[in-house]
């Protein structure tokens, strides 16, 4: 089968820089598919993919579903949920059932870190991690990387700062690995209560003031602040968070150069980001969404055994049906 990415895509921590570049390069020809009147290529025709979502996520699920359909795969959506006690059992049983149905690929979103690997270790199908707990969200980071590369023409040497709740963020972890592997400098900015232990040891610079982060960065990737963090006592109030860490027009105007603004969504406007920033000329937030489909097509295509150099040809050969 495939060797280019391995059997599963669990995270970016264990991918090589070449493997990451390969995904980004393979995504390029797939971008064009979404611009066609008939947005479909037969690359995964006959493959069955299950989108297994143990956690609600409309946008990631829809993005995967479009990617799968545009590759002509047969897809099934399963929205599973359950009490925390039953989660583990459900996962084991789910794995066994999927194995019995000879599914080709599983896209899994799960509230527990490690759940994607757990599944990948137990079934022969390819597994794509669509977000596991606070561990990794590799396709989000890949689409972020692609968007940065589109905007700046490179990734190496850029300064990218992740802003907000790093502690609970799988997006942050995947971005840190991906950016470092491709030669970017990575910063993190937020209150100490939302910084994981030993984060500097991963090779990132630490900012406690958003103004300093803005002065330093070429790109700000503003993370969503889960409102329940306030209830759990990590921050005293959303109001103060916005005043201290909010990415506002005023703060950006004071910066000495243009900064690209990213957000993995869904946004809390007026909490971590000012609407005028989100919708402003420096924002590439909608480009991220567009690239999400292309990157996921690339990941699914490569895991299914597609040869990267054939991705272009596959698109061309595919006369719309």
């Amino acid at each position: 089968m495939t060797a280019v990415l391995g059997k599963d895509l669990i995270g970016l921590e264990h991918l090589s820089p070449d493997q990451i570049r390969l995904v980004l390069d393979t995504a390029e020809p797939f971008k064009e598919v979404s611009e066609r009147p008939i947005k479909k290529v037969p690359a995964l025709r006959g493959k069955t993919i299950v989108n297994l979502f143990f956690e609600a996520s409309t946008r990631t699920r829809i993005s995967f579903e479009f990617a799968e359909k545009r590759l002509s795969a047969d897809t099934v959506n399963v929205a599973a949920s359950g009490s925390s006690v039953q989660k583990g059992e459900t996962l084991v049983d789910t794995a066994k059932n999927l194995e019995a149905m000879r599914i080709d690929m599983v896209v899994i979103r799960h509230p527990s870190s490690g759940a994607a690997q757990f599944l990948g270790d137990r079934i022969r199908s390819n597994v794509v991690n669509a977000g596991d707990g606070q561990h990794e969200h590799p396709t989000q980071a890949l689409l972020d990387l692609l968007t940065i590369r589109d905007r700046h023409g490179k990734i190496a040497g850029l300064k990218v700062c992740l802003v907000g709740d790093i502690l609970h963020s799988r997006v942050a972890r995947s971005n840190i690995w991906g950016l470092l592997k491709l030669g970017a400098e990575v910063g993190v900015c937020g209150p100490d209560t939302l910084m994981p232990r030993g984060i500097e040891e991963l090779g990132v610079c630490r900012f406690r003031r958003i103004e300093e982060a803005i002065e330093w960065a070429d790109v700000l990737n503003v993370l969503r602040l889960q409102l329940e963090r306030m209830e759990r006592g990590f921050i005293p109030s959303v109001r103060e968070y916005y005043r201290v860490f909010g990415v506002t027009v005023e703060r950006l105007d004071r910066a000495s150069r243009d900064i690209t603004i990213m957000h993995p969504g869904p946004m809390n406007r007026g909490v971590e980001i000012d609407s005028r920033v989100a919708d402003g000329s420096h924002s590439v937030i909608l480009a991220q969404v567009t690239n999400g489909v292309a990157v996921r097509m690339a990941v699914l295509y490569l895991l299914a055994g597609g040869r990267p150099e054939l991705a272009v040809a596959a698109n061309r050969a595919a006369a719309p049906e």
Binding site: G133, Q134, P196, E201
Partner: peptide, 15 residues
């Protein structure tokens, strides 16, 4: 344990 490994794994640590 709360430390670098828990940070990497995204698991909640016990300090």
């Amino acid at each position: 344990h709360e430390g670098l490994v828990s940070t990497r794994l995204g698991l909640k640590g016990i300090p």
